[in-house]
Design a protein around this nucleic acid. Structure first.
Lengths: 133, 133
DNA sequence: CAGCATCCTCTATGATACTG
DNA sequence: CAGTATCATAGAGGATGCTG
């Protein structure tokens, strides 16, 4: 009853991202990253603990070396992932989520829950939509 | 069953999207949509209530007609937005969030909160990272 | 007003080769 | 092992013109 009953009149934006505010309230900052092909899977893999470069590469089946590096660099740049270097021979480099990274991963897991819950609903809608030309 | 021999104090994955599960637990289904350039702003605008095509176009300053239509079609296809047609002359078409759309918008607003809260942290990290390249 | 069709550009990503 | 550098390409998105 009190579910979605937040009267949606004319001017009560649930979240102010669009309109004249082109800076998107900072959402794009993180959404652009999440929209990249391998970012989410990389974060997901790292929620289990630190991983070495090669381990990640194996876990993310199909990723190119180029994208593995790019993805990790960008996550590091955002402060979501921390890079550790062991100056051994051969070198050993591991990556792990920062505190910020973990906090994002938590949010992401909530989105996963939502996705799981509504996946069939969405796919049904798509199927119906497609069935009409 | 598998090689659990390397438990370096690992925890279970917070969300199971990567590794062998290529279907991404359905997250990509929605993340791909949110990653598109105008989707979030469109949803944001619609949280305030129904909007006509032209109203949306004006609100989302800079969007092309092509992308406005594509974005709305895809949202409609996903069942996140409902399209209403008034067969007047000239025609009047309005769009509004479905219940599913509202539920997603709610999640999104939580992400916005997170983004707002950590925006400066991320940007600081980026600045520091760049200062060393 | 609310679109659809067409052309074009630019970027994300993939493939491949090389190195400390 | 853990990258960097280079080349190639599919697709997202922009610009423009047309229509019911």
């Amino acid at each position: 009853m009190s579910e979605t009953n937040m009267d949606v009149g004319e001017h009560a934006a649930l979240f102010p991202c669009g309109s004249s505010d082109h800076e998107d309230c900072g959402l794009r900052l993180i959404l652009d990253r999440l929209g990249e092909k391998w970012t989410v899977m990389t974060l997901a893999e790292l929620t289990s603990g630190p991983r070495r470069y090669r381990e990640l590469e194996r876990a993310l089946e199909g990723i190119s070396q180029r994208m593995m590096t790019l993805t990790l660099r960008r996550l590091e740049r955002d402060g979501l992932v921390v890079r550790h270097v062991e100056a051994t021979v051969p070198p050993s480099v591991s990556y792990e989520l920062s505190e910020l990274g973990h906090s994002l991963a938590t949010r992401l897991s909530e989105m996963v829950t939502w996705s799981r819950k509504n996946k069939s609903l969405i796919e049904a809608s798509q199927a119906e939509f497609d069935a009409r030309g």
